[in-house]
């Protein structure tokens, strides 16, 4: 087929739309991060790197928020992928009855609105009246009845746990679809060769599932770094500033009318996303290429 069937200018409308709605807003966002744009004044002045200096100043808390975001992302990637894969394997091979029912039940939290999930868990995790602590106390595990969302040492872990509970079904569905594309012949051949369950998982399932794992990792990285709603609704960044993440801070800066500062924090998030996304894809692609080569 000739590549010159259509003239080049046919692509112009699409490029124009892309430039107008994606490229220009992104670049102007970055440009605004070098200004003192705020809701208090119509004047916008160029302030150089002032906003970025403030963000990276040790006397501010922004570095902690960036760290919290990275911790949240790292933990949710591992937990969602491990548990999602475990459940996908169970539903693909282990469970024989009511498979579709289980799939729906596990997927259900993913379609619940985050605010609803957060409200429910705020109630469940209430240290005095919450269901979880009441159950723990009832079975005599009083020591485990912790102050889940209000103890600064474990609040972030509680948020991660709730987010994992909510997001696991989505990850499971992608991995399950990946598992179902692996031909059964490979497993049968491996079994004849005497491979045990772990070997079959390690040398057949895992390599052939790499494309799906790559997809969920990229999705989890992008989601984790941009996380907002679950943190906002569960703890609003508290207790104190213990669970504050980049996006809640961007929201706060914008809602305080500090647009210049808000866009500067957004720009940093953009760079982190860009770098993280690039390296995750490169890393996983390299692993896949290595597997294919061997």
């Amino acid at each position: 087929m000739s590549s010159s069937r259509y003239p080049v200018y046919f692509v112009l409308p699409a490029i124009a739309l892309y430039i107008i709605f994606f490229i220009i807003p992104s670049i102007s966002g970055i440009a605004y991060s070098f200004t003192d744009w705020s809701s208090y004044s119509d004047e916008i002045n160029y302030v150089g790197w002032q906003n970025f200096q403030k963000i990276f100043s040790p006397s501010e808390r922004y570095l902690t928020y960036i760290w919290n975001t990275l911790v949240f992302t790292g933990l949710t990637i591992v937990l969602k992928t491990v548990f999602g894969l475990g459940l996908a394997l169970l539903l693909n091979e282990g469970v024989r009855r009511f498979v579709n029912l289980y799939r729906v039940l596990i997927y259900l939290p993913a379609i619940l609105p985050t605010l609803v999930v957060a409200l429910i868990f705020r109630s469940i995790l209430n240290p005095a009246t919450g269901l979880l602590n009441n159950v723990l106390r009832f079975v005599g595990l009083d020591a485990l009845a912790l102050r889940w969302l209000v103890d600064p040492h474990i609040a972030m872990l509680s948020v991660v746990a709730v987010d994992t509970w909510k997001g696991i079904g989505y990850i499971m569905v992608i991995l399950l679809a990946g598992l179902q594309t692996i031909p059964r012949d490979y497993y049968e051949a491996a079994q004849i060769d005497g491979a045990n369950a772990w070997s079959r998982f390690r040398y057949i399932t895992l390599p052939l599932l790499m494309p799906a794992i790559m997809v969920v990792t990229v999705l989890n990285v992008l989601y984790g770094l941009r996380v907002f709603d679950i943190v906002y609704a569960l703890t609003n960044g508290g207790p104190g500033y213990a669970t504050e993440v980049i996006s809640t801070e961007i929201f706060k800066a914008f809602s305080k009318g500090q647009y210049g500062l808000g866009t500067a924090v957004s720009s940093i998030l953009f760079v982190i996303l860009l770098v993280a996304g690039y390296f995750v894809i490169r890393l996983l692609e390299r692993d896949r290429n290595k597997e294919e080569a061997s």
Binding site: D151, P152, G237, G238, P239, G240, Y241, A242
Partner: peptide, 12 residues
């Protein structure tokens, strides 16, 4: 309010 919560939780 956040600061004072951080105060009682030893973060400030």
């Amino acid at each position: 309010g956040k600061d004072i919560t951080a105060l009682v939780t030893e973060a400030m």
